[in-house]
Design a protein around this nucleic acid. Structure first.
Lengths: 195, 195
DNA sequence: TATGGTTCCTAACGTTCGTTAGCAACAATT
DNA sequence: AATTGTTGCTAACGAACGTTAGGAACCATA
């Protein structure tokens, strides 16, 4: 067996703890000494496992981006399905990822700008592609007569806004689960649009 | 006449430049030396006009909070008006403030957590009151039969999400003005709800 | 018993941070 | 002519920053 550690590898622990700290205090305002203290070790020791502070942020952001992308591809794989169905699946997938990684999601939304080039540009490109995907899906639905809205681009914006805003109000102990939130979001966002 | 300076007072210039920097780079990642360089002076010179870095952030956040609050009171002053009207007015007021102070709005949304106590708590209290106002207004509309939604609290969340997300995509040179954005937002958010 | 990977330490590096002290130039007011 | 407020400078303070070097345990495998 390889490193079948009982819990998480030290590197994974660092990522996890850093994610929580970056979320609460922000990337720039979180020092390596704070992170080390939260892990119960000294600051220098962290560098036995990582190369730099930014590497942690990079991993947090792009790992989540991968999850969002995979969910999107999965949800829209069946291009013959009704657009409303694809859209609902995409929303559900997004919410599921969001809720399964609340801290990472908040970091993903706010701290990506501290990435330096070329990671910064790559991240923006990924995010833009994701947003365009939603926008075009909605536009396709409108063109097909499945959805109705006076301004598809605007509808996409409010949808994405609701998704982006979610990690800042969602509480794991709330009464709504992932599926219910996704359902309610889809209903509300499509309710005014779908026929 | 008092300080009828041709442009802005130096203090106002500092606030303005800091707002732009805080927005682009984040509060924690913006140094006083950067701010000074953007103003064309030395770092130490800034302290002839302000007491601390956080004082600038405090002013940015609470000044905008005042504007949002004033707009809200104005929009909902006539309690006898239909809820849909009050809501539409509140949205329009919010969007107008948002667009008139795009940079400050982005700072307001993201950087408030770097305020220390008691300002941090006061800010959260103000924001919470604002959100509760929207939530209750929508709930009142539903109770009065003016609005229809399966989950008023959720509807309030998506509305606030759209408002919060706006400064991150709005471009002053875009084709939509403040009034049109507010109108479209209100239409879309209420369109699915109002009768 | 030797080896290599994982883990962590102490000590320190050079840099940058927010901020202050003390001084000087200039404007407008008294 | 004296005063006051605004504006800015240089030089520096102590603290905190991200990061590195070098060494030492420990544990598995060989």
């Amino acid at each position: 067996m390889e490193t079948a550690s009982p819990t998480l590898s030290r590197k994974a622990q660092i990522d996890q703890t850093a994610t929580a700290l970056f979320r609460r205090r922000g990337y720039a305002a979180t020092s390596m000494r704070e992170l080390a203290a939260a892990l119960g070790i000294e600051a220098g020791s962290i560098y036995s496992h990582i190369r730099s502070k930014e590497e942690i942020l990079h991993r947090i952001c792009f790992r989540l981006a991968d999850e969002f992308m995979a969910g999107w591809r999965n949800a829209t794989a069946d291009a013959s399905a009704p657009v409303a169905t694809q859209l609902r699946r995409a929303i559900e997938s997004h919410v599921r990822v969001l809720i399964h990684h609340v801290d990472a999601s908040a970091v993903f939304m706010h701290e990506w700008r501290h990435l330096s080039e070329p990671a910064h540009g790559e991240f923006l490109q990924l995010r833009h592609g994701y947003e365009v995907g939603f926008r075009e899906l909605i536009a396709r639905g409108v063109a097909a007569g499945e959805l109705h809205t006076p301004d598809p681009a605007f509808a996409a914006l409010t949808l994405l806004a609701s998704l982006a805003w979610l990690p800042s109000w969602y509480r794991p102990d709330g009464k709504l689960g992932a599926e219910q939130i996704a359902e309610r979001l889809a209903d509300q966002l499509l309710g005014g649009l779908a026929n």
